[in-house]
Structure formats: structure tokens, C-alpha cells
Write a protein that binds this DNA or RNA. Structure first.
Lengths: 234, 234
DNA sequence: AATATTTATATGTATATACAAATAAGTCAA
DNA sequence: TTGACTTATTTGTATATACATATAAATATT
């Protein structure tokens, strides 16, 4: 009954989480039912319901009607990574951001890209390549293809001032994406662009972004591997 | 009023999300208040409240008392990565899993590791090193330190049959973790272990897991970069 | 004009009640 | 023993009501 400053469902949620983490109920074990917890906490079932429902949505517990609520078994672990806008990423490190456009041309995409963008043959896509600097050190090389059928307005963009990354997020804010992370070696071109030795390790992120059935853009982001660290907590 | 099969708050949530994605309300714009949406959908305010509250917890909208609810400005994207048990990862590729233990010794950890495990000086930790094979090809090299103060039972484990990865998940199921992903080059030792050229690209995951104040284990997982792909959707 | 105070309003939470839906467990029939 | 059916229990959702709280906007004060 709202004894502290936090709302009551939040207190209950915290208390349950603490007990679960402390091993009061082990993974797989069933925790008491809503009714009984409501009595224990001196509140209504709805309040307990909300607390547990939120724990369930966070993957801490699993619920099933009639069977009750049990502590989730962690079969693997999931890490949530935030890939923010490059500029912000760089600025967050306290470095100065600079951006250089290398190419902005309508081209017939190579086979692989055409497949990724699910485009018809003999259709042009926009090829944008650019470099993002942190304090004048190359930080990320961006090689992007944009589906012009889906985003025709991209053709009018110069991308001189606004980088394609930020422009697209502005233009198409709610997209689904798939990321592939890998380690690759720098070839001559990459070494030149990122100012590293040929054969240096690169941390590569490939991202495909779509909405509904339409793929909007496919991009390959390459970073010098010794300086790039993708961190995730949880 | 529950017109379809889905519950009403879910329908409202879906409908709002669809409208937001379609650009009915642009990022930064305020959507109608709960009261007014309740009238529109012919339901109670509480039902609308739940729909919008969930959208807020998913980062789609932002709410402020008196000011109302507005469509969130998308500042970046977040990707959820699932790092499952190595064995399962390998088996999911249709390959046969094999595991070889290389070392299992109590040792004084080097400075860096001692700091990570937040251990006192002159305290031993368990050093376990092993290799995970996919179809007889080296897939992952695991270099792990386990805090024996926190997990004393690890000292009794041979890790001959069960690998430390799975054993720890079993033993200490509820953990918090931090991951760092990076690209590195194979040195002589790595090249030998993973059967790659010296100077090959490695995809490296460093993970620290803890519970409360106690760090339980710190592990470095190295994979041949050209064969390892970490995929995430969302 | 700048600052402090008040007011109005949208969201946030708590609770009681009612019914829906899934399903574990128990019962009965073949 | 097996499978079909029933029932009892637990969670899931909807709603009305009441009050709490943050804060934008309006008003008063200096």
C-alpha cells in the first residue's frame, strides 16, 4: 500500500526481482500466485498482476494460465546493442565529428546488392559512399545502396551536408533492420580509406533495413578493429 | 470493444503503431489524449492507457503529464543479439559439436583479469581454456577465468565432459553480463589453435558476468572472422 | 519585463469487480 | 492403459472510479 516513494507495483516488482536474483526462487521454480502475493503485500491482485506482467515482458519470468508463474530459465543470453547515429557515437566519445562524401551516384547495383534490395533487373539504385571521422581519424567507412523505387526523394539529396544515415532516419523513422557483425581484413582500398595497414582487422556491420516487403537500404559499415568496440550490458 | 480476436488494448496498440509507422503522426508530434482516444475506440481510458503505456515502454512514443504523448524521435536503432550456448550455436548450423579442454588450473590471474574479477591480491582464480569445434573445424577458442570465491564448486569440476560455458549457466543461472565485441588479428598462438593464418581476422567477444557486486567469470571468445557471423533482427 | 504563484489538465497509479480463456488435473468411458 | 470429457484454477483483460502527480499555461506580483 504505497509505503515508500515508489509506486506500489514498482516496489513489488523490485522486491520480486531482488528475491529472484538472490535465488529465493530458482530458475524453473514457480513463484506464489497473484492472489496470494496480493495478500502478502497487502494490495489488490491487479497491482501484483502489473508487477509480474512487467517482469514477464522483460523475460525474467514466464507465465501460463493455471500453471502459474515461474522464473525463466536462461538458456542463452541476449545482449541488446544500441547502434546510434554515427555522429552521436563519435561525439559521445568527446571527439569532433567530420564527414566526407565520396560518391553519390545512381548505378545498376551488383547482383548481390540487387538481391538484398529485392530490386528488378535494369533498375538503378543510389550508391552512396562516405567516411566518418572522429577527430580527423577515420572512424567508419560507409558503403550504402538505397532503393530509389521506395525512397525516390533520395535522388534529390546531395548528401553534402547531411549524411545518408541521419537523412534516412529522418525520412523513414520506423523501419525494421537486420544486422550482421563480422571481422574482416583490410584490403588495399580499405587500408587507404581508413588509414590502416593492409591486412589490419576491421569490425564490419552489415545492415539491411526494410518496411513491410520493401527493402529500403543495405549498408556496410567498416571500422578499424582495434579502435572500435561495441559494448552491451545486460 | 473487442471487435476481433485480439484483446482490445492490443488492437488499439497495433492500430496506433500502424498509424505512426504510416506517418499519420510524425516524430515529435503529439497524438490525441487518452480520454479522446477512449471515445474514438469506444472503450475505457484504462484500456487506451495500457496500449499507449506499452508503446512508450518500447520507445515508440514518449509521454509526459500534462504535455501528452508524442511520437518519439528515432535517435538510432537497437539490435538484440542472442548469444546462445556454443554447442547449440554449432548444432543449429547442422554441424557436429566437439569440445576439447586445454587447461583447467588454479592460478594467480594477471592484473587485468584480477581487476575484471574484482579479486584481492594473492587470491587464485580458475583458468579454463578450451576449443569448440564445428565438424572438426575450430569454431571458438574460449579463454575463461572463474572467481573461485564466488563459485567454489568450480574447483571440483573437471570440465572434461561438460564445458564451462554450459556448466556455469546451469550453476549460476541468473546473471548480469557485459559484452564487448571487437575485431582482432590472430597471433601465432591463435593461428595455431584456430587453424588460421597468422594475421587472420578474428571476431572476439569479451564477456564479464556478475551477480550483485560479485563478478563470477570473465571470458574471451575468439572466432575465425570469416566464418563467424553474429546476426540480429529488429 | 522578469519572477513567483496558481490553476487546469494529461498522465500515472490503485482498487474492486466481472468475466474470458487457457490448461493442469481429475474423472469417466472404451 | 488409453483417450475423451469435465472441472477447477490461474492468469488475462475490461471497466469504473478515485485520487496522485507532474507540469504547461495562465495569472498575479514585484
Amino acid at each position: 500500500m504505497n509505503k515508500g516513494r515508489l509506486s506500489s507495483f514498482q516496489m513489488i516488482k523490485d522486491d520480486l526481482l531482488e528475491k529472484i536474483k538472490a535465488g529465493h526462487w530458482l530458475p524453473g521454480e514457480t513463484i506464489p500466485g497473484e492472489e496470494s502475493l496480493a495478500v502478502e503485500y497487502g494490495c489488490s491482485r491487479m497491482t501484483v498482476n502489473r508487477a509480474i506482467r512487467e517482469l514477464a515482458s522483460e523475460g525474467i519470468v514466464e507465465r501460463r494460465r493455471k500453471a502459474g508463474t515461474r522464473v525463466a530459465l536462461q538458456s542463452g543470453r541476449s545482449a541488446k546493442i544500441n547502434i546510434s547515429i554515427v555522429r552521436k557515437e563519435i561525439e559521445a566519445r568527446g571527439a569532433t565529428y567530420r564527414y566526407v562524401l565520396l560518391e553519390n551516384e545512381e548505378r545498376f547495383p551488383p547482383e548481390g546488392v540487387r538481391a538484398k534490395l529485392s530490386m528488378k533487373e535494369k533498375e538503378k539504385a543510389l550508391h552512396v559512399r562516405c567516411l566518418h571521422f572522429a577527430d580527423e581519424t577515420p572512424y567508419q567507412y560507409e558503403d550504402r545502396w538505397i532503393n530509389l523505387t521506395r525512397v525516390p526523394s533520395a535522388a534529390q539529396q546531395s548528401f553534402e551536408d547531411t549524411n545518408p544515415n541521419e537523412w534516412l532516419i529522418q525520412e523513414e523513422p520506423f523501419l525494421e533492420a537486420e544486422h550482421v557483425f563480422s571481422a574482416q581484413l583490410a584490403d588495399e582500398q580499405m587500408a587507404d580509406l581508413l588509414n590502416v595497414q593492409i591486412g589490419a582487422a576491421l569490425f564490419v556491420i552489415e545492415r539491411r533495413t526494410w518496411q513491410g516487403a520493401d527493402t529500403i537500404t543495405a549498408v556496410k559499415l567498416s571500422h578499424p578493429g582495434d579502435s572500435y568496440r561495441l559494448v552491451s550490458r545486460g
